[in-house]
Amino acid sequence: MTEADDFICVHCGMPVSGLAWGTKHRNHCPHCLYSRHVDMRPGDRACLCKGTMQPIALWQKA
């Protein structure tokens, strides 16, 4: 991971490390579950808008 993968959540303002849990979901904030829109196709990180996406569901391990 690089520092470029780190970001500040646009919703809650908390810093999020690219090495945080769920590295397959590097655009998701583990604090508030909002995310950045970064993919045109899953995994390509090509979208430049970096818009805010609200969480739509919460999955919890039993």
Rank of each mutant, 00 (worst) to 15 (best):
T2D: 13
T2E: 12
E3T: 12
A4M: 08
D5I: 02
D6N: 15
F7C: 09
F7Y: 14
F7P: 05
I8A: 07
C9P: 01
V10Q: 10
V10R: 11
V10S: 08
H11S: 10
C12V: 11
G13N: 07
P15S: 12
S17W: 01
G18P: 05
L19S: 14
L19M: 09
L19G: 07
A20K: 08
W21L: 01
W21Q: 08
W21C: 03
W21R: 08
G22N: 12
G22P: 02
T23D: 05
T23I: 13
T23M: 10
K24T: 05
K24N: 08
K24A: 10
N27T: 04
H28P: 00
H28V: 15
C29T: 07
P30W: 05
H31F: 13
H31Y: 14
H31V: 13
C32M: 11
Y34L: 03
S35N: 05
H37N: 10
V38S: 01
D39R: 09
D39M: 06
M40R: 01
R41G: 13
P42Q: 04
G43M: 13
D44E: 13
D44I: 11
R45V: 07
A46E: 14
A46W: 01
C47L: 14
L48D: 04
C49V: 14
K50L: 11
G51H: 09
M53G: 01
M53R: 05
M53V: 11
P55Q: 06
P55I: 04
I56E: 09
Q60R: 15
A62W: 00
